[in-house]
Nucleic acid binder design. Structure first.
Length: 165
DNA sequence: GTACTGATTTTCT
DNA sequence: GAAAATCAGTACC
């Protein structure tokens, strides 16, 4: 298995033109309107998958895009999948981390607290790296053309595993 | 170091 | 038919 620490995220909320749920329910974003705590996975640019955690109540259509991870466990497996040895390149982008973790469309709608793909709170992990609450920086989102100005991207300050500063 | 380009396909208009 | 929450490689400074 592989394990990583989430170091960069973006929020996609209701009434947000950049959110896939903005224009209403479709076949693709169906899971966005389901209960929180599930995975929303989709293919972007025909080549890469993006991984989101669905947030909020049923019908709200909100999610958090996981943009970057700090690799912790299963690193050799990640290196094999990504075809690179550089730790910083394993998970520093939404398309990269899905590759490193082996996430594809079959993980869409999978529960995040039970099953092959899970997210834990840092408080539940016995790891010295998780003890101190890190400083978080808030900026605008990346790679979108709508609602660019909204400050909904969050990353850990000075962390080398984020996709960019 | 930064800048630009091609790859590739699902989805919705 | 066009756009899309991207990445790796190449060219150039």
């Amino acid at each position: 298995m592989t394990l990583g620490r989430i170091v960069e995220t973006e929020a996609y909320i209701s009434n947000d033109p950049a959110c896939h749920a903005f224009k209403g329910k479709t076949k693709r974003n169906n899971v966005l309107f389901g209960p929180g705590g599930h995975a929303y996975v989709y293919l972007i640019y025909g080549m890469y998958y993006c991984f989101n955690a669905v947030a909020g109540e049923v019908g709200s259509g909100q999610a958090v895009l996981i943009r970057a991870l700090e690799p912790i466990e299963g690193i050799s497996l990640m290196q094999e999948r990504r075809r690179t040895k550089d730790l910083r390149l394993l998970c520093n982008g939404p398309g990269k981390l899905t590759q490193a973790l082996g996430i594809d469309i079959s993980f869409n709608s999978a529960p995040l607290f039970d099953g092959p793909l899970q997210i834990w709170s840092a408080d539940g992990l016995d790891d010295h790296r998780m003890v101190q609450r890190p400083e978080v920086v808030q900026t605008t989102r990346i790679g979108i053309s709508q609602a660019k100005e909204l400050p909904l991207r969050f990353y850990l300050k000075d962390n080398i595993y984020i996709s960019r500063k």
